[in-house]
């Protein structure tokens, strides 16, 4: 993402009369603002390609091991709470919507609308992380974090885990297969953790953007940064849409 120099000055311009030819944010090596915005947007898309491939490695691993250790992945998946997962999906989809609205506000020069949209996006993002941490706490309590005193009890003796058993009536797994639930949880924590890391970075940038947007930085023509951040946020949303399906939904039977 290219940094935009001297955006803040744009805030004080009342009209675009004097700066029509050379707006202050036009970097010296570009011919026009369109070229600059085009280049930045394209760069953001290429960055998202690298992100796709980065998560791609994890998705590949998940598909392979689900194929190999199907019973373990089913039992592991039953430990996840679909209600929390659905709630989080809704939260994230709505945050994507508020982000899209933020981009629209920036494009049409609505400063207060932009600040409101970005703030809502930030709150929803924090809400997502809050729910995720409740889920993580539950896993830690049950010793389902791989590597740290990983416990097989829920899988060797499902009846001991009453809440889950009453819903799914899982049969006990053989010891060998039960041990492979650790692979499931490794991938669960890696994928959701990597996703959460992206959320945290996104929330940090959101805070910065709200700060700048209040001064009118993005509503005087130079909207590239908001648009590119929007792309990032929607990408994170898409990753979650797949994580929700793969981790929570497809192994319920």
């Amino acid at each position: 993402m290219p940094d935009s120099t001297a955006i803040a000055h744009g805030a004080h311009e009342t009209g675009s009369n004097t700066h029509d030819e050379h707006p202050p944010y036009l970097r010296h090596h570009f011919e026009s603002t369109e070229q600059q915005a085009d280049a930045a947007g394209f760069a953001m898309w290429l960055f998202l390609l690298t992100e796709v491939m980065f998560f791609g490695g994890l998705f590949t691993a998940y598909l392979i091991y689900r194929n190999w250790y199907y019973p373990a992945f089913v039992s592991g998946s039953h430990q996840l709470n679909v209600v929390w997962g659905t709630l989080n999906t809704l939260v994230l989809i709505i945050s994507s919507f508020t982000m899209a609205m933020g981009v629209w506000c920036a494009e049409t020069g609505r400063r207060r609308g932009l600040v409101l949209s970005l703030s809502l996006t930030l709150i929803l993002g924090l809400g997502f992380l809050g729910i995720k941490s409740i889920e993580y706490a539950e896993k830690i309590e049950k010793h389902h974090v791989p590597g740290f005193h990983y416990s097989l009890q829920s899988f060797l003796d499902p009846q001991s885990d009453r809440a889950v058993f009453s819903e799914y009536h899982d049969k006990p797994l053989m010891l060998d297969m039960a041990r492979h639930t650790e692979v499931y949880f490794s991938l669960y924590f890696l994928m959701t953790g990597m996703h959460a890391l992206h959320m945290i970075i996104g929330i940090g940038i959101l805070g910065f953007m709200i700060f700048r947007a209040r001064a009118g930085a993005y509503t005087s023509g130079h909207v590239t940064f908001v648009e590119n951040f929007g792309l990032y946020w929607h990408f994170v949303d898409i990753i979650w849409i797949y994580l929700f399906a793969l981790l929570y939904l497809i192994s319920r039977h």
Binding site: D237, Y242, F244, A245, L246, I250
Partner: peptide, 27 residues
């Protein structure tokens, strides 16, 4: 609903549809 082998197919199909909508319109 227990749809046997179709459960993952349907879940991934819906996820792909949702992702496509996000890519086409939000992005």
């Amino acid at each position: 609903i227990d749809l046997g082998p179709w459960n993952p197919v349907i879940a991934l199909a819906i996820a792909t549809t949702k992702a496509t909508l996000v890519v086409l319109f939000f992005m």
